[in-house]
Write a protein that binds this DNA or RNA. Structure first.
Lengths: 141, 141
DNA sequence: CATGTGTACTAGTATTCATAGTACACATAT
DNA sequence: ATATGTGTACTATGAATACTAGTACACATG
């Protein structure tokens, strides 16, 4: 029973997809700062992957500041760290450009791209709202 | 003397970056259908890479329908092929989402993302306009 | 014929990814 | 003190990918 969902697809490495799934769960509010995060042994069991692969996922997310660990205790979701201006401009300069190049290659329109961006933005915000209702239910257990 | 520019950065494979640079040159109009594309030997010389790596770039672009080759003659830029609905929805569903997730992780705003998308969109269109003027200059040589 | 083109190989090295297994230190519950 | 669960660090292996080097052949053109 993991607090995030992941559908494995071909073309991307397992650990990349897992890192992304957790990032998504965090930015959407499905996972909140202070929440307990499953141990690498639980991750590897549930996902049927090697513990070292699970550990690699956690290490990457720790490096990004999304998770924090206490040796012997476990892992929990951290507060979203302040992003560096460098990272931000890299996304706006490079990743956004790559999306646009790809969109133009597929003959999509600017409007379609912007609409998709907005839809995803709103979709993640809706999850955030739902997530705040669900923790209340869990608190009653 | 290549008809596209590429700045190699770490983190991505050489051939990926080259494929992207050519995609960008094509969608921006810097390279037009029918234009001659450099041979793999020229690519490897200019870029100081192995000819097999250059060939891999060309093969990938041919697979995408952006280039077409005539054995013994050479390679030229193809007409932008009709993109499959599958590719399109994949970009709008997955790549756009990934950009949004990353943007939210970096605490960027929807407005900033959409502004960046539009800027890049416009930036590529401006290149297209300039490219149409430059061929005229080259014609006079 | 000489030159330039794409293409297909073989072979090698380095890196990444994922796995398997082991073991230790730390923390908590019984 | 013991049992259980935690993170962490290793070694080793194999597969896949990336990139290089070199060679050779067929095709096209001057």
């Amino acid at each position: 029973m993991l607090p995030f969902t992941v559908e494995f697809r071909t073309g991307l490495s397992l650990y990349q997809q897992l890192v992304y799934a957790v990032q998504k769960a965090i930015v959407s509010g499905q996972l909140l700062p202070g929440d307990r995060f499953p141990s690498v042994r639980k991750l590897s069991q549930e996902l049927r992957i090697n513990p070292n692969t699970a550990q690699k996922v956690v290490t990457r997310l720790v490096d990004q500041g999304l998770l924090e660990v206490k040796p012997g205790v476990g892992t929990m979701v951290a507060r979203l760290p302040e992003a560096s201006p460098r990272e931000r401009s890299a996304l706006l300069d490079h990743e956004a450009e790559a999306l646009v190049v790809e969109a133009r290659r597929l003959s999509l329109t600017l409007g379609q791209v912007q609409q998709a961006v907005q839809d995803h933005w709103n979709g993640l915000s809706e999850v955030s709202v739902n997530a705040r209702e669900n923790p209340g239910k869990e608190g009653s257990k």
